[in-house]
């Protein structure tokens, strides 16, 4: 049976309201403050060393993002940690919070479909993340100009924007996950804990588990170099099941133009390669395309799960 009327009706109204909520909420202020502090700290430390080597590195503004200065990790490492946290904070009470406040049945009694509610909340989270990231990147670049006295080049800007896009996709994964949990669990505290648990699992335990699993498999395998190559690829496959790996590989290739491959490279493949040359952006993009697609696919799958669960849910609290 086909329903009439557009599922987009009211999407704009929900999007605007949710974004206004996000941008004015204390939760976001706190996280933004935290991100700002770490950004300034890491960039300050990075520029400290980079000042000595200006002129030697063609991609200064990418180095600002990736170089770590003991005891501070790099800006990128901090982002990999803070972006999931922000994304989860944006969405963990998206749907069950409306149930708790008893506003959902009132909102759904307006001439809109549920599609608009869910998509509006998701897009509001993505836009909020996007605005935060863009502002942060501009801030970092501005700080770099002040401290280094060199203007960023076009290719650095392009790689920076690609980095933001990849980070947004990575944030989208955690946003969609938190949204799914906010539909599935009735208590916001439960959904927040569940989302953080999944994040911890991939951030800390997945590599350990994948390593253990790989050891079990490789202990039984015997054979020549072909088997070894297959095993190495299998190890990589296990690791890439985690969105964290996908993201770190993407960032690695985007911010380091000298990275030519994300996996085992055979000596024959290096034949004729000019050592030390940098990849153009298009080639780097081609390199991370599978990883980036993987991240987007995860977002779509999680959102679809949330969509199905939400459509089947009873409205009454």
């Amino acid at each position: 049976m086909k329903r009439r009327g557009s599922p987009w009706t009211g999407l704009g109204a929900i999007l605007l309201k949710e974004m206004a909520d996000h941008l004015s909420s204390i939760r976001m202020r706190l996280l933004e403050g935290l991100i700002l502090l770490t950004a300034i700290g890491t960039v300050f430390a990075a520029t400290q060393t980079l000042r000595q080597t200006i002129g030697e590195d063609p991609f200064l503004y990418l180095k600002i993002l990736t170089s770590a200065q003991d005891p501070l990790p790099s800006f990128v490492a901090f982002m990999g940690f803070l972006i999931p946290l922000t994304a989860i904070a944006l969405a963990f009470d998206a749907i069950n919070g409306e149930y708790m406040r008893r506003t959902l049945s009132r909102v759904l009694a307006q001439p809109i479909y549920r599609d608009a509610v869910l998509l509006g909340k998701f897009l509001a989270g993505i836009f909020t993340l996007g605005i935060t990231l863009l502002a942060l990147w501009l801030l970092v670049t501005g700080l770099g100009i002040l401290r280094l006295g060199v203007l960023p080049e076009g290719r650095e800007v392009a790689r920076g924007l690609a980095f933001i896009l990849a980070t947004l996709a990575y944030g989208g994964v955690w946003l969609a996950l938190a949204l799914l949990f906010s539909v599935v669990f009735r208590q916001p505290a439960t959904s927040a804990m569940a989302a953080i648990a999944v994040w911890l699992f991939f951030a800390v335990f997945w590599e350990i588990l994948a390593g253990l699993f790989f050891n079990i498999i490789s202990a039984t395998a015997t054979g020549g170099p072909e088997t070894e190559l297959a095993l190495a690829n299998f190890r990589l496959f296990l690791s890439r099941l985690s969105p964290n790996t996908l993201y770190s590989e993407t960032v690695l290739a985007l911010l380091n133009p000298d990275v030519r491959a994300l996996g085992p490279v055979l000596i024959t493949q290096l034949e004729g390669a000019v050592r030390g040359t940098l990849l153009p952006l298009s080639q780097s993009l081609l390199l991370v395309w599978p990883q980036f697609t993987g991240l987007i696919a995860t977002v779509i799958m999680l959102f679809a799960g949330a969509y199905v669960a939400f459509q089947r849910q009873e409205v009454r609290a």
Binding site: M1, R101, T103
Partner: peptide
């Protein structure tokens, strides 16, 4: 209301029991 809920909801006002608002 199953096929054309938007039109129904546009012309019908509903006040749920224990109505909630954004505090």
């Amino acid at each position: 209301p199953l096929r054309n809920p938007l039109e129904v909801k546009r012309r019908v006002g509903y006040m749920p029991d224990s109505v909630g608002f954004y505090d």
